[in-house]
């Protein structure tokens, strides 16, 4: 990897946020550091504050959403409380759950160009970056198509491409596959993996399909009622037996591990993929 391994990109210190009009805090006392190149999976039951956390990363909170913001959040050197989202969006790309509400224009090309125009880039630079993402994401056949004509998977691909064209350091994805069929979901996740591995892009992803992300992610954060209740390497977090009772979905292969354990078959480590399960079984 090109980057220095321990450069901190995001640092939250005791961040709490309460939406205007709400009675409870959506997130409480969140402290975390995210380093360059990390691939962070965020999970937790619905309403636990995952989306709110994502909104802090690019300053939508506290700039766009009104409410009570406590603590300090620094993203790529900027204090988010003092930095508008349009500046932070240069550093943090954001992909949302509903493809429909983040694609606005009549062609894929215009979709990608929009963000670049907002950055005020000159035409030749826009053309260069457009070409680059079109190549990288293999968008040539879709370029003149209307985003709403595309499948859900293709739409998310375009949404990601439109972010990447702006060359962010961090890509935040908030349940990007919730409305996709399994194969399209896998395609999108594979693409995110590629971005992380080939370009060293830092990824923070909220995702219910834990089985798809667990083998790829380097770190897993579990949230519950606005707090971080677990944070560590994926395998370590998934070794906690009480995750399911905390409302966190675990991959079936992890369930198998625990059920075998209950029958006194102790595998050395928690497997994250079917292949690992096989290796562990063969070892025993």
């Amino acid at each position: 990897m090109v980057s220095k391994p321990d450069r901190v990109l995001i640092e939250l210190r005791k961040v709490s946020f309460k939406y205007k009009g709400a009675t409870e805090y959506a997130i409480r006392d969140i402290s975390l550091r995210i380093h360059e190149g990390e691939f962070v999976l965020v999970v937790g039951p619905s309403g636990c504050g995952k989306t709110t956390l994502c909104r802090v990363f690019n300053g939508l909170i506290p700039n766009f959403y009104e409410g009570e913001f406590k603590g300090k959040a620094v993203v790529c050197g900027y204090d988010v409380a003092k930095t508008p989202t349009y500046i932070l969006s240069k550093y943090v790309g954001m992909v949302f759950q509903e493809p429909e509400n983040q694609l606005f224009f009549s062609t894929v090309e215009k979709e990608i160009v929009f963000g670049l125009e907002n950055l005020g880039l000159p035409s030749n630079e826009i053309a260069k970056r457009l070409n680059e993402v079109v190549e990288y994401f293999k968008l040539k056949p879709l370029l003149k198509k209307a985003p709403y004509e595309l499948s859900g998977g293709e739409q998310q691909k375009v949404a990601i491409a439109a972010c990447i064209a702006m060359r962010p350091k961090v890509l935040v994805l908030d349940e990007p596959t919730a409305n996709l069929d399994p194969m399209s979901a896998k395609d999108v996740i594979d693409l995110v993996k590629k971005l992380n591995r080939e370009r060293g892009l830092t990824v923070i992803i909220v995702e219910h399909r834990v089985e798809l992300i667990a083998p790829i992610a380097t770190r897993m954060i579990v949230m519950n009622r606005g707090r971080i209740v677990r944070d560590g390497p994926v395998r370590k977090v998934l070794s906690c037996e009480d995750l399911v009772s905390k409302g966190v979905a675990v991959p079936k292969v992890v369930e198998i591990y625990f059920k075998l354990k209950a029958k006194n078959i102790n595998l050395r480590t928690v497997p994250l993929t079917p292949e690992e399960l096989k290796q562990e079984l063969l070892r025993g």
Binding site: P45, S46, N179, H208, V244, S245, G247, V248, V250
Partner: peptide, 8 residues
């Protein structure tokens, strides 16, 4: 969709 394992 959007249901945790307990609710499922």
């Amino acid at each position: 969709v959007g249901q945790d394992p307990i609710q499922k």
